[in-house]
Simulated assay, not measured.
Amino acid sequence: MTLQELVHQAASRYLDKIAVCFDECNNQPPVYYTYKTVVNAASELSNFLLLHCDFQGIREIGLYCHPGINLPSWILGILQVPAAYAPIDPDSPPALSIHFMKKCNLKYILVEKQQINKFRSSYETLLNYDTFTVEHNDLVLFRLHWKNVEVSLMLNNSIRRETYEKEKMTKSVNSENSSEEKSEEHMDVRLKHCLAYVLHTSGTTGIPKMVRVPHACIVPNIQHFR
């Protein structure tokens, strides 16, 4: 079972019950969405992505936004494509996010409209994206290009010594190769129904590593979903 299937299972039982509550801590009442609202919004986004995206190979879609009441619907909409959700934190250092996006080889990224100016100013000199932009409600879809894009990840100088970094780089490469070999033995992450989301480690002690999480590693640990 996938995460999206689990949500739809709950929605079929509790369609008009509250599914999401978000409090902005601004002295205003929290905002609530029912399962019906969440599922309908997610389905609209899924249809939008299927219409405008050309999916080949590993399906991963970036999402550049801050937390909000719409975030669960956006994540669900990506999962239903099906595709893996790759969060891009607007407050994260651009160099780190670029490193992550290139490692994912992201072809598409959804950007929250409220963050458009920040996205453009942060990445216009670091990232190639064409004029293909399509709007969907509070999101804008960008198509990315990685040809001739050089990524230089600037790590904290206080934790970087030349010999230490060489050692970390060697361990990082070996670790990634080992992880890829193990994952190939047990699951094919290229399968469109396999991955739920893709994250990266903090990078505070070396080069950030990719963390690809399949649905199978999440769903069995969920005992109750209401």
Results as ranks from 00 to 15, higher is better:
T2K: 15
L3I: 15
E5Q: 15
L6W: 06
R13E: 15
D16S: 07
I18N: 12
I18Q: 12
V20S: 01
C21N: 06
E24R: 05
C25E: 15
N27S: 12
P29M: 09
P29D: 10
P29F: 05
V31M: 09
Y32T: 09
Y32H: 13
Y33G: 03
V39A: 12
A41C: 01
A41D: 12
A42H: 04
L45D: 05
L45Y: 02
F48C: 10
L49I: 09
L50F: 07
H52N: 11
G57K: 09
E60P: 04
I61T: 11
L63R: 13
C65S: 14
G68D: 06
P72V: 15
S73P: 01
I75Y: 08
L76M: 11
L76D: 05
L79G: 06
V81Y: 03
A83D: 11
A84V: 08
Y85G: 07
A86H: 12
A86F: 15
P87A: 15
P87D: 12
D91Y: 14
P93N: 15
A95W: 02
A95H: 07
S97E: 08
S97D: 02
I98E: 04
H99Q: 05
F100G: 08
F100Q: 08
M101A: 07
M101F: 03
K102T: 11
K103L: 10
K103Y: 08
N105M: 07
I109R: 00
K113H: 09
Q114S: 15
R120F: 05
S122T: 08
Y123T: 10
E124I: 14
L127I: 10
L127Y: 06
D130T: 10
F132Q: 13
H136N: 07
D138P: 06
D138Q: 03
D138V: 01
V140D: 02
V140G: 04
V140A: 08
R143G: 08
R143T: 05
H145R: 10
S152K: 11
S152R: 11
S152Q: 07
M154A: 13
L155M: 06
L155E: 02
N156T: 07
R161L: 00
Y164W: 07
K166G: 00
M169L: 08
M169R: 08
M169A: 06
K171P: 03
V173N: 00
S175P: 00
N177D: 02
S178F: 00
S179W: 05
E180Y: 00
H186L: 13
V189S: 09
L191S: 13
L191G: 15
L195K: 13
A196R: 14
H200V: 05
T201E: 00
G203Y: 12
T204W: 10
G206P: 03
P208S: 01
V213K: 11
V213I: 15
V219R: 09
V219F: 06
